[in-house]
Amino acid sequence: MTWAGRIRLAVGLLVVFAVVGACTLVFTQRQTRADSVSAAMTADAFSLGSVYAGTVVDQNVSAGDTVAQGDTLFTVRSPQLARDLEQKAITADDLGVPVDDDGTYEVVASVDGVVAEVLAPAGDFVQAGELLATIDQAGSLAVAAQFQLTARDYGRVEAGSTVELLLPDNRRISGRVAEIDVETDSGSARSTIVVESPALAAHAIGGLYQPGTPVTATLQLRDDGPLAGITDAFGDFVRKIGL
């Protein structure tokens, strides 16, 4: 073989090794990442209810309004409460909300946040304990993501694992696995993972940034080594052909 032939052979081998190495790297990277089947923003929701049966005489907020803890959202007039106060069967301190002697009481916001839903507008009669509204708490935005994982990949998910979130405005932010819930479905782990992200939690609730907004989540699985993906794939193939 001439020197020119030897050089061409050496260059060809280097190219083959480079291609195989690149393919191995890409394959391994793919084996350490999992994309969500579905994912959406969530927030801690707080319910506000009536403490006595009565009529809603004032409604100070609508869905989408920003409120602060202690803001008066509803005023309810209750003849039954007026009677109980008169008979000293109960005191205003027992209720823990502002109350007048005529049985009128206020329903106030328990947290800072955004009103998600109003269920009892002015003029409605409500029973004791009936839900009037819900508030999405400020600073609590997170993501609930569903993943379909093999049993082996589920074992590579850990609390604190990195999750990349692609938001509706095409921003990419980082989060961490906070909670993991799993159900087994035909040999696969159908996992619901709660992802917390300081960058997302710091965003004001509203517009695209509110519960129910879809996002894409990419979960970083534990890296078991550069050849783990190839070894696992080969093992799966051997099991499928019955060897």
Rank of each mutant, 00 (worst) to 15 (best):
G155I: 09
A199Q: 15
G160A: 09
D224G: 02
V194P: 07
P198N: 02
P211D: 01
V163L: 03
A178M: 04
S191A: 15
V215P: 00
R172F: 04
G155H: 08
L141V: 13
G175S: 02
A142K: 12
F147V: 14
A201D: 02
L219H: 01
D181F: 08
T218L: 09
V157I: 09
D223G: 03
A199I: 14
Q148N: 15
D153V: 11
S197W: 06
Q148H: 15
G175M: 05
V195S: 01
G187C: 05
G212L: 12
A217R: 05
G187R: 00
Q220F: 03
V195P: 00
L149K: 11
G207I: 13
E196M: 06
D223F: 03
P198T: 14
G160C: 05
Q148R: 12
V194Q: 07
S186F: 09
A204V: 12
N170S: 15
R156P: 01
A142W: 06
V194W: 01
R190T: 08
R190L: 13
H203D: 13
L167S: 05
G206M: 15
D224Y: 00
L221R: 08
G207L: 12
R156N: 10
I180N: 05
V195K: 00
A178F: 04
A204I: 06
G207A: 14
D169Q: 10
S161Y: 00
R172Y: 07
G207Q: 10
R156I: 04
E183T: 12
A178K: 05
R222I: 04
I205P: 08
V195M: 01
L141F: 02
T192L: 11
P211F: 01
V143I: 09
T213D: 05
D223C: 03
P168Y: 03
R156M: 10
Q210D: 00
V215G: 01
A201G: 05
T216S: 05
L219M: 00
V163C: 05
E183Q: 12
A217T: 06
S186V: 13
V215T: 01
G207F: 03
A151T: 14
